[in-house]
Amino acid sequence: MDFSPSGWAAEFDPSESTGQVVWRPVERWSADGDALVADERRGCLLEARALKGFKRLVSVGKVVGAVPAAPGWKLKLWDDDKDDATAYEVPIAAWIVDAGGAMSPVPAGSDSYLEPVLRQRSEIVAPE
């Protein structure tokens, strides 16, 4: 998890089905200072440390804004970091701005959910 509304994420033990670490964004803090995460089944916020498998809190980027990208900006992505032949370009739909002022490109996707590319080899391509 790279961003959350609070700038923090809760780490939980790996999922039994996938074996991957489970991350949940800290949505906000309680009046007592406890990290609150969404419980999808109950439909409410719960203290992260009270949930099964809680390990720790980790600082992540805090999104403070989003800016639409000007036409022509593209993101070059690689399916395989070591193979240049796997490169392809997609238009940049927006820029995510974090609390430190850094901007991350958000590529246009085929679905309605946009997210920044952070862990994949990428290169920003300026308009011609």
Rank of each mutant, 00 (worst) to 15 (best):
M1P: 12
D2G: 06
F3D: 02
F3V: 08
S4A: 12
G7H: 13
F12W: 07
F12R: 02
D13C: 03
S17T: 13
T18F: 05
G19Y: 13
V21E: 06
V22K: 11
E27I: 09
E27H: 10
R28D: 06
R28T: 14
A31D: 14
A31V: 08
G33I: 00
G33K: 01
A38M: 14
A38D: 13
D39K: 00
E40N: 08
A48C: 07
A48N: 04
R49T: 06
L51F: 11
G53R: 08
F54M: 04
R56Y: 09
V58H: 11
G61F: 12
K62E: 15
V63A: 12
V63R: 07
V63N: 01
V64M: 03
V64E: 10
G65H: 10
P68K: 06
P68M: 02
P68R: 05
A69P: 02
P71G: 05
G72M: 03
W73K: 04
K74I: 03
D79R: 12
K82N: 10
K82L: 12
K82R: 08
K82F: 14
D84V: 07
Y88L: 01
E89V: 03
V90R: 11
V90M: 07
V90K: 10
P91L: 05
I92C: 02
A93I: 02
A94T: 08
W95E: 06
I96H: 11
V97I: 15
A102R: 15
A102C: 11
M103F: 14
M103E: 15
P107S: 04
G109C: 11
L114M: 13
E115P: 00
E115A: 07
E115D: 06
E115G: 05
Q120I: 12
R121V: 07
V125I: 15
V125R: 05
V125E: 08
